[in-house]
Design a protein around this nucleic acid. Structure first.
Lengths: 338, 338
DNA sequence: TCCGCGAGTGGGAACGCTCCCATTCGTGGT
DNA sequence: ACCACGAATGGGAGCGTTCCCACTCGCGGA
């Protein structure tokens, strides 16, 4: 048969012997319909195989029933980081039985940013999920200007006004460093992520806290900055070994960077964990495949995804909902590198 | 100012002193507009900051300017396989400056399948991209029933009628096995993917071809079936070692499975590549992080993504376009495992 | 001079829905 | 017996576009 002529609400009304409005009421679950009418309409809908046209509905309700998940990906990290995949999976889970569709928007360059802007201006989404935000990210401001509900995974700064969900980066980092100290390590260095991102800053702060807690000074010479890529991790490790040849542990702010660090350690003939213990962050798939396998701080990425989705849906349906700031706990997964 | 009242085409028309139709013509680039009128309209659009309402347009044109990327993910492979991420990236690239939006649909269970069905029935997308199809996948049939343009990454069978783009799995597998034979290996086993998927079948066929080509019999005892997961790869390797203790090479149909195979080989005290050489498929990120690093067949996943996107856009704009079947070449990346 | 034609234009209708309103009932209270 | 009231219902209008069609001009050719 094919698509030929889709039935409209009128067809259904005629078939059921009622008015359009009654059909609309049934569809939208209004209680102001007699049982008789409701039954007739439901029968007609089933017979005709009627499906409401969401575009037409959207025109009058000015709702699209879809949200955007925006992934800025300047560093082309999507491939190397299961992080994004897990977020996507979580978001999708959080959207189940909400009838909300998920638009995926990759913002890699100016052109794609413009496309996002246009899409937002055209009101093609009811709200936006934002991942991996930088301190001076232009996107949140853009969305605010358009008055579009927005929820972040992570936050721009400790005073983030927008709703957001993040994992306990500070606590996770502290735990990782405490673990290293507990193993008897005395010179614990760290490789940080970009410091224009809260994740980067708070993981660094966690390292500092744990050292101070153990009455050790978090000296600047023990800190090497990188940008979440493997190469930058390797470079940072080289730098650290040059500056502090006798370090015996490194806390690395991501697994991918830790993999790079391991490469460098091996290249310089340091044994892991005997000479230098290493702890990563994320507990991503590569943690299990490095040599040695990598101790890492697991964060509940999928839960973050479903949480931001649910919060956004909530804010869309009731814009007056107070903003929420959620922190999810991390867990240390100990493997062979420490 | 915020969103307050968005201007409509009427506002623009009034401002420019022309009729609605003329504004519409300008927006849609019709040549039947005088320069004077066009200039006036463009000025008005700029002043009012007018953006056409795509939902209203969609209602009359019955076009949504969005497509769906459907990822069936029963095996929850999204996390472990950069494959999907790369496809997503490619698709997004293929969509640049088409004004088309990308909907991501994960189909993990019955509920999500129903949601997809509904979304398709509601005509919320103009076409669908399908990834990782199984031989008896119900989704393509579903889409065909609704008459929705569909393009696949990979194919269900060699006689696939729908447009699709895939990599040269057969040739890639042949090359991998030839490479092993060229290294002097005599007993080359294989670990296959699921045989209800074309990828699984053709990679296996490639293994057979290459052996025959070298006048060796592709004995069944050398074939162990797995399902693209790491665990299944490990299990298959164990099985192979039991059946053929003197094998000296394995061609594994995916890197993730190869990682599992490496674990088993090490557990059984076989040295790689000295005792057993291993080649994987995909050249995914984990290939660089196994010990030893993994020789693998690289496939141009991102290109596949952008190709299917472009083909779909083409078929949407002109449904009469003949179906296209595109094959993209693979490359062997030699590392330490062979 | 008149006609025909094509370029440029704008108003009406339609896309399929929801919402506002007016209308029709039955029912219980007086 | 009457009125008021709430439940149930349906028609009209409108959401912001595009498309069809009719209309007005100039202008060149007969």
């Amino acid at each position: 048969m094919g698509a030929s002529q889709r039935p409209t609400i009128k067809t259904v009304a005629a078939r059921a012997g009622v008015g359009r409005t009654t059909v609309s009421r049934v569809i939208n679950g209004s209680p102001l319909v007699s049982d008789r009418a409701r039954a007739a309409v439901e029968a007609a809908i089933a017979e005709l195989n009627y499906v409401p046209n969401s575009v037409a509905r959207g025109l009058v309700t000015s709702r699209t029933n879809s949200i955007a998940l925006v992934i800025p990906e300047a560093e082309s990290r999507l491939d190397s980081e299961p992080y994004f995949s897990a977020v996507i999976r979580g978001v999708s889970t959080g959207l189940v039985d909400t009838k909300t569709q998920l638009q995926l928007v990759l913002v890699r360059d100016k052109g794609e940013l413009d496309q996002l802007t246009e899409s937002v201006a055209e009101r093609r989404v009811d709200g936006v999920l934002l991942v991996s935000v930088h301190r001076d990210d232009p996107i949140p401001g853009l969305l605010e200007e358009f008055g579009l509900p927005t929820v972040l995974a992570g936050r721009r700064s400790p005073s983030e006004p927008l709703s957001h969900v993040r994992s306990d980066n500070l606590g996770g980092a502290e735990e990782a460093v405490r673990h290293l100290l507990g193993r008897g390590r005395r010179k614990v260095a760290t490789i940080t992520g970009p410091l224009d991102m809260e994740v980067g800053r708070s993981r660094l702060q966690g390292w500092r806290n744990a050292l101070r807690e153990a009455c050790r000074e978090p000296e600047e010479v023990l800190v090497a900055r990188a940008d979440f890529t493997e190469k930058s991790g390797q470079r940072a490790m080289r730098e650290l070994l040059r500056r502090v040849p006798d370090l015996d542990a490194v806390f690395v702010a991501s697994d991918v960077m830790a993999a790079g660090a391991l490469v460098e350690l091996r290249a310089q003939g340091r044994r892991v964990p005997e000479d230098v213990a290493v702890v990563g962050f994320d507990d991503s798939i590569i943690a299990r495949h490095t040599t040695p396998s990598l101790t890492s701080v697991r964060q509940p990425v999928e839960e973050i995804g479903s949480a931001i989705a649910r919060i956004l849906i909530q804010e869309i349906s009731d814009p007056k909902t107070p903003r929420r700031h959620v922190v999810l706990p991390t867990t240390l997964v100990v493997r062979d590198s420490s």
